[in-house]
């Protein structure tokens, strides 16, 4: 519209500078966390290679044979000092080489992570977005009808769901939909009898298998969204500018938009942050539904003392959270003009 001229945004450079600062700090953070992880993981009691060696000896190999077999199996013998291993590990990171898995000999950690990530990211993303949309919508109603029965029901259901741990919810849903009323598969990613491919049958089976995990993610986080949105809307409804808008005779639709946009702002930050947890927060659900995502992979790597895989999984979680924090901050700069101009004047 020509009515209101568009001013040049002098904030672009400031935003770029802010982003650069974030990236530098993020890298430093990743470095520190990775180093700490390295030290902690190497100090976990139980040496998988020694364990393998002893197992081979028990099975009747001579010690020499066993040692050679172990070396062949893993392609290396970690005899160096911790410091040498550290330098080696960090060097590998630069080329995105996370090493070889110890529990699954011959497999690259990077490849294993990538394969598992698909099974985590898509369902968690779907579950989070579903619960965000649902929770935010219901939160608005809970706020508007806060003195009525509907508001009470919504708020109480939100608090209850918010209080139930993910794994209890997963077990409950599993029990209901696979045993009491068996309409959904309770484990795996797809029916193994169906040939993988872009067929309707296979995709349908994928969706069917993903339903319970997605539903669990959604229900587990829905309570938090509804409560957060409710309190945010209640705060905005009490703001002067909403009364002012009503006194100016703005239509209900416009006033509602004023409320909704102002109220949802802080929730975007929580959303961005929760997406960062997406890579690590699904251990229980994946374990219960035997869904081969990152959570299950991490769990297996810990029980199997798979240093390399553990390190890789932790690194992935770290990077995801750091990125999510940066995104949350930058997002706020973009969507909230007050923060943006604060940046300009700083």
């Amino acid at each position: 519209m020509v009515l209101i001229g568009v001013r040049a945004r002098p904030g672009a450079i400031a935003v770029a500078r802010r982003l650069a600062g974030h990236l530098a700090r993020g890298l430093a953070m990743i470095l520190v966390v990775t180093s700490i992880n390295f030290v902690i993981i190497r100090n976990i009691p139980g040496d998988p290679i020694a364990a393998r060696y002893e197992k081979l000896v028990e099975q009747g190999m001579s010690p020499d044979q066993a040692e050679r077999a172990t070396a062949v199996l893993y392609g290396f013998l970690p005899r160096g000092s911790l410091w040498e291993q550290y330098v080696d590990y960090m060097g590998g990171l630069l080329t995105l080489d996370l090493g070889q898995s110890l529990s699954t000999p011959g497999a690259e950690v990077t490849g294993m992570l990538a394969a598992a990530a698909t099974w985590t990211v898509i369902p968690v993303l779907a579950g989070t977005l579903l619960s965000f949309l649902l929770g935010v919508t219901m939160g608005v109603y809970a706020a508007i009808r806060r003195s009525g029965r509907l508001g009470d029901v919504l708020a109480i259901s939100g608090s209850l769901l918010h209080g139930v741990p993910q794994y209890v919810l997963a077990l409950l849903l599993g029990a209901i939909f696979t045993t009491l009323w068996p309409i959904l598969p309770g484990s795996g990613t797809a029916d193994i009898m169906i040939e993988p491919g872009l067929t309707a049958e296979y995709v349908g089976s994928l969706a069917e298998h993903a339903t319970l995990p997605v539903l669990t993610y959604a229900l587990a986080s829905y309570g938090g969204w509804i409560l957060a949105m409710k309190s945010s809307v209640v705060t905005v409804l009490g703001d002067d500018f909403i009364l002012a808008a009503e006194l100016r005779g703005l239509t209900r639709g416009i006033v509602f938009r004023y409320v909704a946009r102002n109220a949802i702002l802080p929730l975007f930050t929580i959303l961005a942050l929760s997406l960062g947890l997406l890579f690590g927060g699904a251990i229980f659900i994946e374990r219960i539904f035997t869904y081969p995502g990152l959570g299950l992979l991490l769990l297996d790597s810990i029980t199997g003392r798979d240093y390399a895989l553990m390190g890789g999984a932790f690194l992935l979680i770290t990077v995801a959270i750091v990125i999510a924090n940066i995104v949350a901050d930058m997002l706020y700069t973009v969507i909230d003009p007050r923060v943006r101009s604060g940046e300009e004047s700083a």
């Binding site: 500018f241 703005l250 909230d336």
Partner: peptide, 28 residues
């Protein structure tokens, strides 16, 4: 009532109060 507000009766808030939507330009 809504139509009467704004068109027939103008109401001016205290300046210190935030009577404008913080996210939107005045023109919008």
């Amino acid at each position: 009532l809504r139509r009467a507000r704004g068109r027939h009766v103008g109401y001016v808030f205290q300046a210190a109060q935030n009577s404008l939507n913080p996210l939107k330009p005045v023109g919008k």
